[in-house]
């Protein structure tokens, strides 16, 4: 029978709210790194937001740059430490709103880093404000009390399609609402790290994750919302896979 045990790189408890997807994503990152045998020389870049907690939980080197600038910081690290495994663990507010240009320029430069973007459709740590790129139409947030109205607040954007226009090595979207999709997300994240080992280029993996606290739903209902609503707007799957071409 298979044995399932917490990866050795996780040395502390997860600091997130109950039912948050960040804890699962942190485990998928740690498992992928351990399975590829890279755990001795990993530098993680976290954002000043919920993903900041993974500094305490994981036994890797970490740096947190200014809010939203993770991709730029990771680019710098990879330039001066090309032998290190560099990854970004950031939210959608960081990667798609505040740090959009950093994310796009990391993709244009095709820096061989692995970027994991947690798409929970909201600014989680600041209390649940509207995220212009990922909040769904009609969602009530702290800064859209009557629900998101496309007339004044526009429509959500599938950023992976934008990034797919740049010549990146790998772009994929996973979800966390059931075990099948969690396993699929792990395959994407592992593929992202594998690309980095083979120096193939920029890999971005977006993960549809719940934020039960700010969505004001139970964790189980939040997962059902991803399955029934979010996935319709942001379809899961591989967007770009450049394969062996360099």
């Amino acid at each position: 029978m298979p044995v399932f045990r917490k990866p050795e790189s996780i040395i502390n408890t997860a600091g997130y709210c109950g039912g948050c997807g960040h804890g699962v994503i942190q485990r998928l990152i740690a498992e992928s790194i351990e399975e590829l045998g890279l755990q001795d020389h990993v530098i993680g870049c976290v954002d000043i937001a919920c993903s900041f907690w993974s500094q305490d939980a994981l036994n890797f080197e970490f740096i947190a740059g200014p809010h939203g600038r993770c991709a730029a910081v990771a680019t710098g690290i990879k330039k001066v430490r090309p032998d290190a495994t560099v990854y970004v663990h950031a939210g959608d507010g960081c990667s798609y709103v505040i740090g959009l240009s950093e994310t796009i320029y990391a993709a244009i430069r095709d820096v061989p880093i692995t970027m994991v973007v947690v798409n929970n459709g909201i600014f989680g740590m600041t209390g649940g404000q509207l995220n212009l790129a990922t909040t769904l139409i009609g969602d009530k947030t702290l800064s859209s009390k009557a629900g998101r109205d496309p007339k004044t607040m526009g429509h959500p954007v599938d950023m992976l399609k934008t990034i797919a226009n740049c010549d990146v090595a790998f772009a994929a979207r996973g979800a966390l609402y059931d075990v099948k999709h969690i396993d699929e997300t792990k395959r994407y994240i592992k593929k992202g790290f594998q690309n980095q080992v083979e120096n193939r280029g920029f890999s971005i993996i977006e993960v549809l994750s719940p934020c039960p606290t700010n969505w004001k739903l139970s964790p189980v209902d939040a997962m059902a919302k991803i399955k029934n609503e979010t996935e319709k707007v942001f379809p899961v799957g591989v967007y770009v896979d450049r394969g062996g071409k360099d």
């Binding site: 045990r5 408890t13 997130y16 109950g18 039912g19 804890g23 699962v24």
Partner: peptide, 11 residues
């Protein structure tokens, strides 16, 4: 696999 807080060990 679903637990965000690493509660379970299966062995």
């Amino acid at each position: 696999k679903v637990c965000p807080d690493y509660v379970f060990t299966v062995e």
